[in-house]
């Protein structure tokens, strides 16, 4: 017995980089909780032929931003960080951690701070959306090209009437107050550049106004 090797479980040294998370924030609303599978009801048709059951299932996800982390951390600081390929110079927000150009062969990109200026590439006025966004309607969604970027990024345009948006209009990027930021894309939105004035009403603007006005009323009826 004394000759048998005793196997013990020790805390193993990990051979992978293990980040130590020191800055933790919890802002979970009270009504958000994970409860696993719960059957919450059922219904049976009058003729007894069809049955429906109601199942609730909810879970918590961890979005591990990994190499993209600096972009989302930058939002907390009120900065838009883009990436740039040191070989071809292409620059992006949304970021790419490796270059899209085949000739650069997945070249690692470098981080650059972007100006808080953009232009409307295209736009729409939403009167309907996913469950999480219904109460925010109407939403003006624009694809804006941030100065220096090769791509357009989607975000909300505020501080303008829905019918006054224009192609190519100049925008500024406006961040929420620091205490309200969560390190997500909704930490900022677009607004018209200071001094920009909408053009006079025209036929298309009247049409959009007519389509949007009932949306304001409908949103008021949402619980």
């Amino acid at each position: 017995m004394g000759e048998t090797e005793v196997l013990t479980t020790k805390k193993k040294k990990k051979f992978a980089y293990e980040p130590v998370f020191t800055e933790k924030k919890e802002y979970r609303p009270e009504n958000v909780r994970e409860v696993g599978f719960v059957f919450v009801g059922h219904e049976i048709s009058e003729d007894g032929n069809v049955m429906n059951q109601f199942l609730h299932y909810d879970q918590l996800y961890t979005i591990r931003h990994g190499q993209n982390s600096r972009f989302f951390k930058g939002l907390l600081d009120g900065k838009i960080l883009g990436t740039r390929c040191p070989r071809c110079g292409d620059t992006w927000v949304p970021v790419r951690t490796h270059c899209w150009n085949m000739d650069c062969n997945l070249q690692k990109t470098e981080w650059v701070e972007m100006p808080l200026k953009a232009r409307v590439h295209t736009w729409t006025v939403a009167g309907w959306s996913g469950r999480s966004s219904l109460k925010r309607l109407p939403i003006i969604l624009v694809y804006g090209v941030i100065e220096g970027s090769k791509v357009a990024i989607a975000n909300e345009l505020k501080n303008v009437k829905p019918w006054d948006v224009e192609f190519n209009m100049p925008l500024k990027i406006v961040f929420k107050p620091p205490e309200e930021r969560i390190g997500a894309i909704i930490d900022f939105h677009f607004e018209p550049e200071d001094g920009w004035e909408p053009s006079p009403m025209n036929k298309e603007k009247e049409r959009i106004k007519k389509l949007v006005e009932p949306v304001y009323e409908w949103v008021k009826t949402l619980k």
């Binding site: 993209n68 729409t124 309907w128 966004s133 925010r136 624009v142 989607a154 909300e156 997500a184």
Partner: peptide, 16 residues
């Protein structure tokens, strides 16, 4: 990470 959170759903992207 970039699009759904700002209120986007497919009809909105297609509309733009």
């Amino acid at each position: 990470r970039y699009e759904l959170l700002v209120g986007g759903i497919y009809p909105i992207y297609y509309a733009a």
